[in-house]
Design a protein around this nucleic acid. Structure first.
Lengths: 346, 346
DNA sequence: GGACACATTATGAACGTTCAAATGAACGAT
DNA sequence: ATCGTTCATTTGAACGTTCATAATGTGTCC
């Protein structure tokens, strides 16, 4: 008996009846208040409040032929989720109400038929648009979505084709340049680099920022090494890298996991991160936070807001921008670049 | 011109016309195929396929007075997200289609007015039910939802009131008991415990499993210590704990972060995790995976499936269960409990 | 005072679907 | 031959909203 029936929910006609006006006047009071006289507006809104009325999103969707929802795929294929996936989804979810929509996540364990989930959501008209993540070269999704006329926005460059403009990304080289500047200010001498194997666009970009930063600031060019996104391999690579560095030097890393590898390798040879060796990571992930590693935090809130603006504009038929947008990461300082320890060397 | 208009989407009447039948027959062909003759069924389904028809979820929602969606709140208040939040949401998202629904996340930066998001989604009829996470004692949500007649299911016990039955959780004591058994089999001698400060129901439960396991298996009771969910504090506590242990002993931890603290403390004194000291964590988080720590993986897929079944049953008016459900975590072995290293001691 | 502009409110229709009830056809049983 | 029965299919209505349009009132100008 407890959960037999939800309390009868008020509809627009209930409000209209109670306020002594017509459906349409209630609709106007909510959607275009300027079209209704001040006193009736007040009366209607009072009733709306009393009855706790909110327009049914389903009815609106049916009428407007617009779901008011944006789909986004959760990566359920790899076991280890990206460190930024949840914060990014949270940022999208927080931004969505500002764009009068909500997010609808979907996922699939199949690696191959990537488009199925997208097709299904479109056909059922559950979403109007998509936010893509983890776009890679030869990604079929942008192509398919454009041909189907479905708006989308990608977190991450679309490498396929430079004519694609519906994306926002983090300015990697600006980030590592900032990291070098910070290390220079903190008094570190030589600055090395631990990146990913060459060929990754994101990684190459971050490496360039390091090179550029070293040139611009008062630090010595240190050695560089590369490792895949794995802690053990990062440690191995870091050990070699540290052989070419001395106490008082620093390492800029292309990711937080790589930075963690450097930190572990440093600790293994008795170097205290921060005091003896500067280390910076990239992404501002929970991993960096947990281990006190200075990192470059991605402005996920801004990016999410921008991406939803993009799809909103597309739905409204606004003209396309001429290019994608880069956002600057911000440096958060952790123990790994703080030289003045309580028992530290001057 | 590119994205001027999406291709005209087929509706049920389009299919009906093309197949030479009525709306309702198409509807039946999709929803109750047994009610339509075999040959017309085939004909209709063929047209459905050709036109790529899928019922509009908005129209269905309006007709059925059911959103076919389940809301779940993303924690946007604390900076550091839970390690299991994303895998759990992914599991829910994967399970949802099996229950003919989809997930709708929502979030708020406000810590205080927790119910606002829930109220809003219900009033707009965007969701039929909720999946709760991070339920805590004196949590207002279960009470409010039950009074409002809104189905819900909680991942995590509802401590308030034992009459609450709409939850599923991980069997913590069974987990740590399994961990002790594994350590005993692996030949570790004494087994200590690093937990959270007493008073947390989850933590106390996991501690009991350790005690119980030590009693049942051929290991010596080691010392115990406590630390909050912070790496630096975990390391500090672990240092004290290790003073009471010797090479060949082990530590069971209430969480992966605590286990990481033990691992770091062990490395700091030159003990190799696995070979010299067994370490187990809890949750099977990305942290544990990254650092090669043996952990107890929560069966998130099963839990998600169960929770959606619960809300589905509530919506269908099925009788309530008599109690919540516990799920057993499974042990994944990492380097932190592997004694036979390539260059190891026999 | 009548025509006109304007502001405000009201009415019919439609979005796409499914339920409830009606229609028609086939088939035995009486 | 007629009457139920059953099965396959169709029709009318409704879910709640907003668009397009119509109706109403209110004042202004000549």
């Amino acid at each position: 008996m407890l959960n037999s029936h939800q309390p009868a929910r008020a509809t627009i006609v209930d409000v209209a009846r109670a306020a002594g006006v017509s459906r349409q006047t209630v609709s106007n009071a909510i959607n275009s208040p300027e079209r209704v006289s001040p006193d009736t507006l007040a009366r209607v809104l009072k009733v709306v409040d009393e009855l706790n009325y909110r327009p049914s999103s389903a009815a609106r969707t049916l009428r407007h032929q617009r779901a008011g929802a944006v789909g986004t795929e959760l990566n359920a294929v790899t076991d280890i989720p990206s460190d930024v996936a949840l914060p990014f989804l949270t940022a999208l979810t927080l931004s969505a109400p500002r764009h009068a929509c909500h997010m609808v996540p979907f996922a699939s364990r199949e690696a191959f038929p990537m488009l199925d989930g997208y097709q299904d959501m479109v056909r059922r008209r559950l979403v109007d648009a998509f936010v893509l993540t983890d776009t890679h070269p030869a990604d079929p999704r942008p192509d398919w979505l454009e041909q189907a006329g479905i708006p989308y926005a990608s977190f991450g460059r679309i490498y396929d084709d430079s004519s694609r403009v519906w994306w926002a990304d983090v300015d990697g080289s600006a980030g590592t340049r900032t990291a070098v500047a910070h290390l220079a200010e903190s008094g570190f001498r030589a600055v090395g680099f631990l990146g990913w194997p060459a060929g990754s666009a994101v990684g190459d970009d971050r490496r360039l920022g390091w090179l550029d930063g070293v040139e611009r600031h008062d630090v010595v060019l240190g050695p560089e090494a590369a490792a895949p996104q794995s802690l053990t391999e990062a440690i191995t690579a870091a050990e070699v890298l540290l052989d070419g560095l001395a106490i008082g030097d620093a390492v800029v890393c292309a990711s937080d996991v790589l930075a963690l590898g450097v930190q572990q390798a440093a600790l293994a040879r008795g170097w205290k991160p921060g005091r003896d060796l500067g280390i910076t990571g990239f992404d501002g992930s929970a991993t960096a936070h947990l281990h006190g590693i200075t990192s470059l935090v991605q402005p996920l809130d801004d990016i999410a807001e921008h991406l939803l603006t993009i799809v909103h504009d597309q739905l409204a038929g606004a003209p396309a921008p001429t290019q994608g947008t880069l956002f600057l990461p911000t440096l958060t300082v952790g123990a790994s670049t703080v030289t003045t320890s309580t028992k530290g060397t001057p």
